[in-house]
Amino acid sequence: MKLYFSILFGFLWALGYGQTAQETTVEKGLHFTRLFRADPHEGVSCYRIPALATATNGDVIAAIDERVPSCGDLKWSKDINIVIRRSTDNGNTWLATERVVDYPFGQSASDPSLLVDKTTGEIFLFFNYMDLAHEKDVYYLKVTRSTDNGKTWSEPEDITSQITKPGWHTDFKFITSGRGFQTRSGKLLHTVVNLQKGLFIFESNNHGKSWQLIETPLKPADESKIVELSDGSWMVNSRVNKAGMRFIHRSGDEGKTWISTADSSLIDPGCNASLIRYNSEVDGDSTEILLFAHANHKTERKNLTVRISYDEGVSWSEGKTIYEGSAAYSSMTVLANGDIGLIFEKDDYSDNVFVRVSLNWLRGKKTSVEKVD
């Protein structure tokens, strides 16, 4: 029966059905474009865990979990696939949904994250995998690659042995969803969580041909984002459950040692967030800034806010509210036209919407928000 429905849905996808509709709503001047919403006619319970990135040709890729039997996470669902939508015009319009990772029933893939190698143009889509039928509660970490800006994807590669340690086999471990980071030297960086042992950084010095684990744990930390600062040091911004705030980890020696502090200015209910670097060239201003999107509330996943740091994460602006209501995981990218694209889980995970804003709007300058429809 699973095979029948997979063939049927694949046929419908090939014809252009399934998540082709593009509905845009306007709320307080912002235009929200619905990219993923569960439809009972598709037999999908929900879409969760979005990731967003801009390919080197300017195409925008949005990836997400397609959770079929329930909204449960990886260890509780025997059928989760990774699907994407692409935009070739800075998020104005979006192509139909495509499945890029789809295992047989009993095996699931979850928590997509994207990393674009700006040197080679290759895109890496990481995800976590489990064979619930034969090895329940054992997590494997995989990656699929695209060399044509997200049009086609390679067979997934298991990189568990490269980015974990042998004693971790039965540990609760996963690659953080959302996105990784590339340094100015070309090194590729990402984060992997081991709930028993801490957060770890993994890296590639050869454009993703192989990956290595940096064995120094960061604590406290759950799902996290890493960036390189202007002085070449690294900064990790971490979710810490029940803390009510984010934790910041800084390293001046490429991850060998870390200094960890709580940042009470970044309140947080315990939710994945998004952190990116923006090289500003607006109005002759060449200042490099950091952008941070998070659920700006101590106890509830709501009030999605984007903040700016002009001093490499030492302090943050009050921020601009994107959505006051229910809002959870988010992912940002810098678009080819210089705007900022953001996808987030909206209204108790029922919707996953894309919104585009300008840097001037985030800075509080009087300028209209770019319309996305």
Rank of each mutant, 00 (worst) to 15 (best):
P220N: 05
G198M: 07
L275A: 09
G252R: 06
L199N: 10
S224P: 08
K209D: 15
T191N: 08
G186Q: 11
K225V: 00
T261P: 00
H207G: 09
K187S: 06
W234M: 14
K219D: 13
K197F: 10
Y278S: 11
H249Y: 01
K197A: 14
L275R: 00
V227R: 01
W211T: 00
C271I: 06
S238R: 06
T216W: 02
I201E: 03
N205Q: 11
S265E: 10
W258I: 01
F202I: 13
L218R: 00
T261R: 06
T257D: 09
I214S: 06
K219P: 01
S224G: 13
L199D: 03
A273T: 08
W211G: 03
K197T: 11
V193L: 14
S260M: 04
M245A: 12
L188Y: 09
K242I: 06
G255N: 02
P269L: 10
L188P: 08
W211Q: 01
S224L: 08
S265L: 14
W211M: 02
P217R: 13
S260E: 01
G186Y: 11
T257Q: 08
A262L: 10
V240W: 06
D263S: 10
G270S: 14
G198A: 12
G208R: 02
W234D: 04
L195Y: 11
L188G: 05
D222L: 10
L199C: 11
E254C: 05
N272H: 10
I267A: 00
M235I: 13
Q182N: 05
S274M: 08
G208C: 09
F200T: 00
S251Q: 03
N241L: 08
S185N: 12
G252F: 10
I201G: 03
L188M: 08
E203I: 14
N194W: 14
S265V: 06
E215I: 07
M235C: 05
R250K: 15
T191Y: 00
F247D: 03
R246Y: 04
E215T: 11
H190Y: 15
G232N: 14
S224W: 00
D253K: 11
D268F: 01
I214M: 05
H207P: 11
L275I: 05
N194C: 14
G244A: 11
G270H: 13
L213C: 04
S204G: 13
T257I: 10
S210N: 12
S251G: 04
K256R: 12
F202W: 09
